[in-house]
Nucleic acid binder design. Structure first.
Lengths: 244, 244
DNA sequence: GAGTGGTCTAGACCACCCC
DNA sequence: GGGTGGTCTAGACCACTCT
């Protein structure tokens, strides 16, 4: 029998299992929404105890990469599921009611990555990109004006038709159409004065204060996929955050 | 047939242990910065296995209520420790350098809780409160103008002298002087136009866009302790947030 | 009833820290 | 060397879901 030698840098077994599971996810062995094999089955596949598989899955579940459902199985998390639909949308009405915005596509064009965006997307400056502009409306009021930038190589054949025909959030679109599941994002928020054309699109006066939310969204392995800038008027709405 | 009725409220053992540990923390049996008893010791105290204590501690550690240190022990987290000093401060220089702000106290006065603040602090409207105003400076530039409101009953004998003599963050002050450890906070962020006197204090033009960050901070058992409103100019700085 | 995740136990051993 | 947390195992039993 070949026992794994204790390597100089100690790596617990469950972390290696975690890596193996992640590789299977990246490779598409199990797709978003599907169940992965049972803990016992994975334990015998990897030749470890159920407890070790369990710890690996626990961590992936705490990162919202997998979802456990008692009595049923463990599933690959998906932005297409209602509960995860607007997982990354932190702007909420102060009234406390749930925000189910409507997506209005403004523009899709080709462009080249600026230095900043190239760095954010880990591509070369000047690389071809798609630029998407859209407005999120809530109760027929424009709420957020978004600009998204995607590396063209990762989104071949992206057209207005495909975007418009799609029902659901951007991230379920990336996921279902391009197999890119977003698992994490970083946001930087600033306050800015509204300028045209944003002011008009959001129906606020020029110079009105807006939230400017810059986001980089990542898929498995911390690979950046989307750069986004959102402008948002915050009368009646606010960006909610929990600090723990 | 005798159908075994589904137990109305199933509570796993480790959750009960978690509650017992939390009660000891609230009661002050172990103070911030101190070590709690070892896992084996707690296991025998509670008559459960080490694994069960371990799971309870794991959860408290993931909530940053306890801190594990391999080979040493498990400690009560404290805002006085350097690593946790500015745990809840999300405003950072865009340069990426670390933010070690300086605290400048402007005002401490007594007041009465407005309806909104009373609700936030779970006290009666009109209850006596302390109102603290201060500026956080970074490299001699005013960065954040904060107004904090505290229920007077929870902070007896609060004076300018005690506040000014204290070195460190607000929350280490609450913790060391009043035994109130903040473990969680909720923030709501909006964009607002600067007005006097905030504009002058932050050295921005009237009407300039500012971040307005409203916070409620909680101690053990989700008890609200502090209401806070921060105004922040964001040229060169931004509010960082990670979405997971 | 069968299968899944969830809990709990007991014991062994490893990595880390400090004396 | 002795104590602490960290990992891993094997097995038992519980709670939940679906059939």
């Amino acid at each position: 029998m070949t026992e794994p030698l204790p390597s100089p840098s100690f790596r617990p077994l469950y972390e290696q299992i975690k890596i193996l599971l992640t590789q299977s996810l990246v490779a598409g062995e199990w797709k978003p929404g599907e169940a992965i094999p049972s803990e016992m089955e994975l334990a015998s596949r990897f030749r470890v105890s159920q407890g070790t598989v369990r710890k690996a899955i626990d961590e992936l579940a705490s990162e919202h990469i997998l979802v456990r459902r008692q009595g049923k199985g463990t599933y690959v998390a998906s932005h297409s599921e209602p509960a995860y639909q607007y997982r990354f949308l932190r702007v909420m009405p102060d009234s406390g009611e749930k925000l189910h915005p409507r997506n209005v596509l403004l523009e899709l064009r080709k462009g080249k990555a600026s230095a900043d965006i190239a760095r954010a997307l880990a591509v070369k400056a000047g690389s071809p990109v798609h630029v998407i502009k859209r407005v999120l409306e809530f109760r027929d009021r424009p709420l957020i004006l978004d600009e998204m930038v995607l590396a063209a190589t990762r989104f071949p054949g992206l057209t207005v038709a495909r975007l418009e025909e799609y029902k659901g959030s951007m991230y379920s679109f990336y996921e279902e159409v391009y197999g890119l599941r977003m698992i994490r994002a970083e946001e930087r928020i600033r306050a800015v004065a509204a300028r045209e054309p944003a002011a008009g699109l959001l129906r606020v006066a020029a110079g009105a204060p807006l939230l400017c939310v810059d986001r980089i969204a990542f898929t498995y392995g911390d690979m950046p996929v989307e750069w986004r800038r959102g402008l948002c008027a915050t009368d009646g709405f606010s960006y909610f955050n929990e600090l723990a």
